[in-house]
Amino acid sequence: MNPKAAQLLGLAMRARKIITGEELVLQAVRSGQARLVLLAADASGNTAKKVQDKCSYYGVACVTTTDRYSLGHAIGKDGRVTVAVTDGKLAESIQRLLT
């Protein structure tokens, strides 16, 4: 993962603009809170399909990152498979750095 993107994810976490956990992320996508969803490349096929399908249906950007451990490390938690960013500007900046 890009170090600057990881830094911005940490900042978003401290600002409470991050939602983690598969069910909570899907709920945020459905409710329109999520602006960007980050999905670990080592997520199970079922989880990846579910998250990507929800994101495409609701028009939320979904970016696949390295692995669950680097994603979790960026936000200061143990391995996380899905992370949603709820702040529009932060999501835009992180997406620009990751794509």
Rank of each mutant, 00 (worst) to 15 (best):
V37Y: 00
S56N: 09
A84W: 00
K4N: 00
I94S: 14
T65F: 06
Y58T: 03
A91H: 01
I18S: 04
V60Q: 11
G79H: 09
D78T: 02
L11Q: 11
R35T: 05
L39K: 14
L98A: 13
K4I: 03
D87P: 08
D67K: 07
Q95K: 10
K50L: 14
D53S: 11
T20W: 12
D67T: 08
V51A: 04
Q33K: 07
A6N: 03
S70M: 06
K77I: 09
L97E: 06
K4V: 05
K4E: 00
M1S: 05
G76D: 14
L38A: 03
S56L: 12
E22F: 05
G10V: 13
V81M: 14
G59A: 10
D42V: 14
L38N: 00
A74Q: 01
N2H: 06
L71V: 14
R16P: 00
T65A: 04
S31N: 05
K54G: 11
V83W: 01
R96K: 05
L9T: 06
D53W: 04
R35Q: 11
A12H: 09
Y57V: 15
D87A: 10
G32K: 07
R80D: 11
V25Y: 02
H73S: 13
L8R: 10
Y69T: 04
G72N: 03
V29I: 07
I94K: 13
G79L: 09
G72F: 04
L39Q: 12
K50Y: 11
L39A: 13
A34F: 02
L11W: 07
S93H: 10
L90C: 10
L90W: 14
P3W: 10
A74W: 00
G21P: 01
A28R: 09
T82Q: 15
V63L: 10
D67Y: 05
V37E: 03
R35H: 08
E23G: 08
M13I: 02
G21E: 05
K77S: 13
L98C: 12
R16Y: 01
L90S: 12
A48G: 04
D87L: 09
V60R: 11
Q27W: 07
V63R: 14
T20I: 15
K4W: 00
V29K: 06
R14N: 12
C55K: 05
V63I: 08
G21I: 06
T47N: 09
A84Q: 01
L9N: 06
E92F: 13
S70C: 07
V85Y: 05
V51G: 02
L9V: 06
K4C: 00
R30S: 09
S93W: 08
M1V: 09
V85A: 05
G79Y: 06
A74S: 04
T82W: 15
C62D: 02
Y57K: 15
R16I: 01
T47I: 13
K89N: 13
Q33Y: 04
I19S: 09
